[in-house]
Design a protein around this nucleic acid. Sequence first.
RNA 1: CGAGGUGUGGCUCAGCUUGGUAGAGUACUUCGUUCGGGACGAAGGGGCCGCAGGUUCAAAUCCUGUCACCUCGACCA
Length: 472
Amino acid sequence: MVEEITPMGEDFAQWYTDIIKKAQLCEYSGVRGCMVIQPYGYAIWENIQKGLDSRFKKTGVENVYMPMFIPESLLQREKDHVEGFAPEVAWVTHGGSEKLQERLCVRPTSETLFCEHYAGAIRSYRDLPKLYNQWCSVVRWEKTTRPFLRSAEFLWQEGHTAHATAEDAQERTIQMLNVYADFCEQELAIPVIKGQKTEKEKFAGAHETYTIESLMHDGKALQSGTSHNFGDGFAKAFGIQYLNDNNELAYVHQTSWGMSTRIIGAIIMVHGDDAGLKLPPRIAPVQAVIVPIAQHKEGVLDRANALYQQLSEKFRMKLDDSEKSPGWKFSEYEMRGVPVRIELGPKDIENNQAVLVSRIDRSKTFVSLDNIEEELEKLLEKIQEQMLEAAKQNREEKTSAAVTYDEFKQIVEEKGGFVKAMWCGDEACEMKIKEDTTATSRCIPFEQEQVADTCVCCGKPASKMVYWGKAY
RNA sequence: CGAGGUGUGGCUCAGCUUGGUAGAGUACUUCGUUCGGGACGAAGGGGCCGCAGGUUCAAAUCCUGUCACCUCGACCA
């Protein structure tokens, strides 16, 4: 056990910070609220990008790039939107030494830029749909920040689409939510709850906001990706009209959807343990690390190098031939979440074998060097499955149902996690629950259950079941 | 923005009450012995004590101001 990592049970927030430092994912920078993403952390992000980007493109999405500045007048165009974001934008007031005629904000999100562009680019129904996405960073002047979970500048992708009909826009909104959910489960091994945000929690300017919610090890929820249906609200504010096939002028219907580097925080908090990070094999920058044993002995490093060359053809590999002791290396790569360690020493070479050690449970398998490729592939697949299974199980354990308000308060207070409870639909109850317990409505899940007949808060008849919980 | 806390080699911290030549562990460098769960010995390098004023013969230490960061609340991806 490495004593530099604070155990989760002792102080979860400190554990999270320790993992980030020890795994070398990011460092604090000299710039307020901004982080330096280190190579290992950035490599995880690159793998996330690859996975998402290819899924987007399969649905017809194209990548573009918009300016990082938004003139104040443009930001003002849609009322709810500006009200939602104005309190947290950074302003550029000078160009060189000249004061600007109109100040520019550094984009907190790019709806307004895409809308302005679409207003000019869309003329006819033949121009639709527009399916654009951009990879960029955005800035939100947050009061308090935490690495990956909430930083003043963060990396993300934002998709913005324009459609001829409300039905097309709704279909796209759900389609992208499903892309995110599928990505999280298949690649990141993070199970998610799909559902709709309440009126109170939805995005500034959206008609409907859909979300995937995941549950962290400490029982707190994390909004892991969102997909919004804007209806024709932005189209009306920005004048995005087209001629339909009856030669009539109509407004487009739009969507937007995003996932950010925050998801790296989810990977850490869903999978990690007291020994460090645990990375799902499909996105791990290093899938297996070779640790030579007694590497000074004749032939060990040569054999390790040959194995490295061989396995690198198929897997993301690392060979650590530094002078550190084997024990040090074991701990180091566990801390950094490498799924498999391959030990290769003189005894192994003599027996034409190597030892595969799983990051999940440290179980050791002796495999012949003749079929190590197949064995490694099998083990990586198994680890990927085990991680999803473990995360599902943890979520099960931390999901409860509440009928009475006392019951609800007690669960939030003592057990945490997701609480399934009925809601009458009145925002007053939502506010009261937040005030009393600090838990918020996470989503109205697509998969509904009738937990009770009445609202958990006010006792009036209720038909909607909502997931509640404390959130990041 | 409210309430608390912390700023001293890269990292974790001691020293401050009672002012008097800046310390430890770890990390780093070199050499030797080690190597299947964070090895051992020896010798080295590295800090205007967050910043700015003040008090004093003398300030890491006392006073004033300021900035940054952390934790917990309110807000967000």
